[in-house]
Design a binder for these strands. Structure first.
Lengths: 381, 381
DNA sequence: CCAGTTTGCGAGAACGATCTCGCACTGGTG
DNA sequence: CACCAGTGCGAGATCGTTCTCGCAAACTGG
């Protein structure tokens, strides 16, 4: 990459010191410096600034003035080491963009944490279980007070067990982890998916396509893989149940499982559209797949919401703004983040609460990407 | 919000201890525990695990086995305090979604940092200068080794000066900060914008609309506000220069400055389209504005790339996938993040390097949202 | 066989905060 | 005047590491 570099000024290091005292420009002042300047001991200075213990009001004032003059800022590391609380939580997450989960939940977590005086150490696992293990370990070494984890697909959860061992609580978000006694904040993806199918059927759709993202699959397959991330699993089950309840025949259910690669998912969409009796609507398990539908449909000059219908999971600004608006199963992503922080902090303050799985409801936002086939029939007659 | 709660199991606390030693289940083992078990002193244990100093190979093995058996994990807090390095950098950023800057750059920074053994403490300022001040202060108290900051619009940079005081380096990203001697990684938004106008003009566009987001403006105005974020400022200048170079009359340049609110920006778009001689193309300074164009055009049954053209800044997956694809001024967001981390770590390792402003080039990705008016003219004739 | 070097290890001092303890001083009371 | 409670403050321990220093044992060579 070509880079244009502009040197603005060679740093001349003319820094305005907070006080006339230039003797120690290098190291930032400690509480000893404050104490010396105020003419008291370390202990008294600490009491004065921490407002605890027995101390004369006049001394407090003197110490505070000294601290102010020196520009004293406490070393949170030392403080944390002494009192055993870092006021920091670790976030182990999978940074993927299209689903607008990572960014929304991260913002919610960071903001909610700050509201309670906590900072967030963030790590990305890229859906790799080994990286996740290391990330958890590193965060624990950094002495975080608790962890929020989007668990990656894995069979081995030893590292999460070890996490408990340190006595520090963990909250799982977005995905369930069966057989693990942790609190999890998830969404009711089963009901959401079921509901979406019901909606489509009410608009006259009878041949349904399901485009399911599956990390464990290579390329594309019609065979349902044994392993699915819990969210995708639940969506799949919900779609299935919706179709079953409406009495849709198996031959009118077009299932495709495919890896999260543009090429694969676009091929999958194409294969759906090329079938003899193609589906009139495609349900996608995430936004990557939905974008593939948009792309392939666009290339074929098919109009979404007329020639082919679409429903996906997770709302986004573009889904609302484009024409036609995309009908989505919206999940309360910010609520997940906020709840996770609140419960984590509650668990930190008061450990030993019973674990539970909190399931937040989803909302179907009906826009125009699902055609009303009754209306179409009426129109064409 | 209604919540379905499912208590999975009341934690029965049957934790498998890493060793038969049950005497101290509460506190995680320290190096003293390891030393005791290995029958050596603290110092020797530290040497064995840290692989430094003079130590017998047999002792190393004994200590390592003890550490393994106890499940010893070093306390990074204590370590950091002793050696004065936390291996943590602070990220002060504005979490906004539509521009796909926050999430992409965050991922890049987190990943690049991890590559070098660093963790990232993240804070959100919501474009508020006072919050930014506090965030920087908190991060410095947490003893981060350096800071990466997306500076919020402000006149007061005292807190950034104070940051230097602690001797810890800062990297600015995304936005320039004039008059401040910091290294900044930004993009060539001027050239990018100029180039985009040139492209449009080459396709026959002569009446140009510019929709500029301006935080300091209330609602909508045609008056250019005195204060613009540097990125938006540069884009504005670039648009202006492109129009000037092509000899576009002032009366054919339709400028609108508006706050970052859907209502305002949609009103702004409407007012552009309602003019007597409306622009054939709208350049937007960010994706919020672009989505407003999509929405209003959709409501009016105008087709993007035919009835009205559109160019915006920052590429995204949806801009590539929808029909028509949106022509964008793509910025190397990941490169910004990576470079920022690299230079920050370099500055941490070897302080006193000259500051400079690094300007990364943008790329115009031409898709179909810009109509070829020559072709149109040809077609309609 | 002894002086000198090398080797392995432990005692103790940091890092910067908090917190317990007890000392000295004040002032009130019998 | 003696006693006691209360007040303000400082000495020192502590959190869990790392690192300097010096000591003793082992090894070397003349």
């Amino acid at each position: 990459m070509q880079v244009r570099r502009v040197t603005v000024r060679s740093r001349k290091c003319e820094v305005i010191l907070p006080d006339e005292d230039v003797t120690q420009a290098a190291h930032s002042p400690t509480i000893v410096d404050v104490a010396t300047r105020a003419g008291v001991s370390r202990a008294t200075a600490s009491r004065a600034l921490g407002h605890y213990g027995r101390i004369a009001p006049a001394t407090i004032k003197r110490v505070e003035q000294a601290a102010e003059a020196l520009g004293y800022r406490p070393n949170e590391l030392a403080r944390a080491m002494r009192i055993g609380i870092t006021k920091t939580i670790g976030l182990v997450i999978i940074t993927d963009f299209t689903n607008a989960f990572f960014d929304r939940v991260t913002k919610a977590i960071v903001d909610e944490a700050k509201l309670h005086g906590y900072q967030v150490l963030i790590t990305n696992t890229d859906e790799d279980s080994e990286i996740e293990r290391q990330a958890v370990e590193t965060l624990l070494e950094k002495q975080v007070d608790g962890l929020i984890v989007v668990p990656s697909l894995s069979k081995n959860y030893d590292h999460l067990g070890a996490a408990k061992l340190g006595g520090r609580p963990i909250m799982l978000i977005d995905r369930r982890l069966d057989n693990l006694p942790f609190t999890a904040i998830i969404t009711d993806d089963f009901a959401g998916a079921q509901n979406a199918v019901r909606h489509a059927i009410s608009l006259g759709h009878k041949r349904l396509g399901f485009l399911i993202s599956a990390a464990s699959v290579e390329n594309v397959t019609a065979q349902r893989p044994a392993e699915l991330v819990s969210t995708v699993f639940d969506r799949t089950e919900g779609f299935l149940r919706g179709a079953f309840d409406a009495g849709i025949k198996r031959s009118d259910q077009h299932w495709i499982f495919c890896e999260d690669e543009p090429k694969s998912s676009e091929a999958a969409v194409a294969s759906l559209l090329d079938r003899p009796n193609p589906p009139t609507i495609i349900f996608t398990s995430n936004n990557d797949m939905a974008l593939a539908v948009l792309k392939v449909a666009g290339n074929r000059r098919l109009t979404i919401g007329r020639d082919i219908s679409l429903v996906t999971v997770d709302d986004s600004q573009w889904a609302a703004a484009i024409v036609p608006g995309i009908t989505v199963i919206a999940r309360p992503v910010e609520e997940i983040g906020r709840l996770a922080v609140q419960r984590l902090l509650s668990e930190i303050a008061d450990p030993g609460q019973p674990t539970e799985i909190v399931v937040l409801p989803t909302t179907l936002i009906a826009r125009d990407s699902v055609a009303n086939l009754y209306l179409e029939g009426f129109r064409s007659s």
